[in-house]
């Protein structure tokens, strides 16, 4: 808006680092976001140990995230006049190159857009081997009738409590250890072959965040007792109600907390 000047504006005014210019930085950012969505997030679950397999981000989510990233970048570069001009200058110059300076150098920038379009359409049109999305709610709500239950051993202290826990440890190590592991870390000998990994009790997001009636429900009703939002079909968790008495289930829950070094969450309000 100021007076027209025949010299190009100084590119370092756009506030970018390394003298790269705003356009390359925008491109790098978008590529970085794409790489993060494509590889980072799927493998994060594996690195953190939540899942054995990388879980790809669904296509529609990728599209939404990339759209947001693109719009965000556009808002950012166009929010200031000098920056916007610095952003557009290399593009305009690529489109209106004066003659000379090698044919390849002139054509290369012009080839970027058609190639990008080809790549995106290819991804849309060509069949991919992505598995159907398997969204899953890990902690569905506790059914009312279980919330009312009470741990008959909850009041015990000292040696009496230790004796109950010890019985629970034997029951745990016989029945639960194959999947949930000797240490409760969800990596027992049978865990390797399961796509839905057994719960890691030492993870602060599992039994430590729920009241002790919750694991009672899960042990008694098992995977097949889950609502559909929690993908009961993938769960190898047995429904133990016909094989383990309620008292023994409470013992197991107390042992689980001892093994994992956690405490059950206290219900809201001391008494219900």
């Amino acid at each position: 808006m100021a007076t027209l000047q025949p010299t190009p504006p100084p590119l370092d005014d756009d506030g970018t680092v390394g003298g790269l210019g705003i356009l390359p930085w925008t491109a790098i950012t978008l590529v970085g976001v794409y790489a993060g969505l494509r590889f980072g997030i799927p493998w994060l679950a594996v690195l953190v140990g939540v899942s054995a397999n990388p879980a790809p981000v669904p296509k529609f989510a990728m599209a939404i995230y990339m759209l947001c990233a693109g719009l965000g970048a556009l808002v950012y570069v166009s929010s200031e006049d000098t920056r916007w001009r610095a952003f557009l200058t290399p593009i305009v110059q690529a489109f209106v190159v004066p003659h000379g300076g090698g044919r390849a150098r002139r054509l290369l920038p012009l080839a970027i857009i058609p190639l990008l379009v080809a790549w995106i359409t290819w991804g849309q049109v060509m069949p991919s081997t992505q598995s159907p999305p398997e969204g899953r709610i890990q902690h569905p709500g506790l059914p009312e009738q279980f919330a009312k239950l009470e741990n008959p051993f909850g009041v015990l202290k000292g040696p009496e409590r230790n004796a109950i826990e010890r019985e629970g440890v034997i029951l745990y190590q016989k029945n639960c250890r194959p999947c949930h592991g000797t240490k409760g870390t969800g990596d027992g000998p049978l865990a390797r072959g399961l796509r839905l990994q057994p719960v890691d009790f030492t993870d602060p997001g599992t039994i430590a965040t729920v009241v002790e009636q919750y694991p009672f429900w899960r042990i008694q009703k098992g995977g097949i007792g889950l609502p559909n939002v929690a993908t009961p079909w993938n769960s190898a968790m047995p429904a133990w109600e016909d094989e383990i008495e309620p008292d023994a289930i409470w013992r197991i829950i107390m042992a689980e907390h001892g093994i994992a070094g956690t405490e059950p969450r206290k219900p809201e309000g001391s008494e219900r």
């Binding site: 790098i28 970085g32 976001v33 790489a35 494509r38 590889f39 980072g40 493998w43 994060l44 990388p54």
Partner: peptide, 14 residues
């Protein structure tokens, strides 16, 4: 810069 660095880092970690 920070964001793109982070995203690249995640990609590499993959």
């Amino acid at each position: 810069t920070l964001l793109s660095g982070l995203a690249l880092g995640l990609g590499l970690a993959g």
